[in-house]
Design a protein around this nucleic acid. Sequence first.
RNA 1: GCCCCCAUCGUCUAGUGGACCAGGACGCAGCCCUUUCAAGGCUAAAACUGGAGUUCGAAUCUCCAUGGGGGCACCA
Length: 493
Amino acid sequence: MNLKPVRTRFAPSPTGRMHIGNARSALYPFLLARRTGGTFILRIEDTDQKRYSPTAEAELIEGLGWLGIHHDEGPDIGGPFGPYRQSERRAIYHEYAWKLVDLGHAFPCFCTPARLEKVRQEQMKNKQNPRYDGTCRGLELGEARRRVDAGEKYVIRFRMPKEGSITATDLLRGEIVTDNSALDDSVLLKSDGLPTYHLAAMLDDHLMEITHVIRGSEWLPSMPLHVHIIRAFGWDEPEFVHLSVFLKPSGKGKLSKRDTDQAMKDGYSIFLGDMQDLGYTPEGVLNWIALMGWGVPEDDLLTLDDMIARFDIHHLTPSPAAINFAKLDHFNGAHIRSFRTEDLAARLKPYFLRENLAVDDATLLKIVPLIRERLVTLDDCLPFAAWFFRETVEPKPEELVAKGLTASQSADAARKSLEVLAGLPEITPQTAEPPMRALVERLSLSPNQVFGILRVAVTGQTVSPPLFESMEIVGKEKVLERVTRAIVMLEKM
RNA sequence: GCCCCCAUCGUCUAGUGGACCAGGACGCAGCCCUUUCAAGGCUAAAACUGGAGUUCGAAUCUCCAUGGGGGCACCA
């Protein structure tokens, strides 16, 4: 792999919520930049004032920060190639668009949207390809300038050659040859003075000295146009890499609103903003999205640093990938298991606080090792451990009855257990487990039965962290109190 | 309608003409461990879309078909 420092960029348009597709489009260029000791840039492509969403940019930056994908230059931190927000680069686009006119590669166009729409309808009706009909293409430049100066509304279109073909190269797919006759006189500068993506992105990538353009495959069909624009200026084009799209879990089609709604019902989401609430970690999410479209040999449990060390653009795959939430869960759980106790405790704490539980750090630190390997998402700490932070537990009477025993038999087992536990100086796995096992033996019952009764009595639930470890944390006094109460409940049944 | 891209287990993928009766991971099933739930260990089932060609030899190269995806805006 060529390790010359690259300059890459993530160039989202702030129009909606940040999702895993965006995240991956940021991840790969980031990895390439870090891998080569290069530079990763954030550029905001806000040239569509109709679709602009003021909260989107903040969400984008927040999402990147959460994942640990930090940019070296961007609208929030500046840099030598700014501004990094396209709406602030108006003058540049204007200048270069007219430069292209002067070079003969573009022309001003005065056609009204209404007329163009009519032409398009006509063409569709005649089963022709919808495209610009060339009305202003032959306009004399002096005349065109006069009309512009007179204040007439205009756009600037690229003057696409009528003949010949163009060869564009995608790093993952190789050379793609396109007949120019299949290409259109696309608009470069809109009548509001702002550029279209085609002009803005090519210009900025050149001006910001981007060496590798890594973007979604929805841009593949317009790559020939982009290469035309770049060459019209006399520049060399960067390396292009078009990432495959994410498909819905079934693999049939891309994700729709309906699919994302369904995912949310199942406790999943593709939006970064939701994923944190759902208990996903940046490590898990990153690992998940990184491996959709990147074939990493051997171990696939990767941290960001692992990814940087192994990233190779040639191992990206061009085919679409169906998302698989089960795999997200796997990676999330695996990363959680790898966290140090203090780290995991700190990450879990907000989820307890969210439920208004009185978490104290010392207790939390003791709980973490007990629940660590049981967590798939961070908020799974609640069903396992929320009860530790409540004054009392509320066992269901029927759950106190052990399998295969009656209520009074269960009460009896509980009474005998209470005697054993009460006789201990303190309850720890070391002190309590041997005598309790001996008791089980003496009663000719199974550990499952007796420990089950105690589990429900002490934790209030049938599923919990290991029993004796939990008892140690809760403390002898509360354990005896709760077992006593359970006996009363059983006797009343 | 036209243009472009893609195609290996259910899913993500390894594989760049012989080392492939196709490897890994997730999921699924079974077993082991086990006080619940997990985690962990072991085992199993599971794929080269189809057809022509090139070649001594093809998952790998070519063509066609099929399927899937994307695009054809004064949106990105």
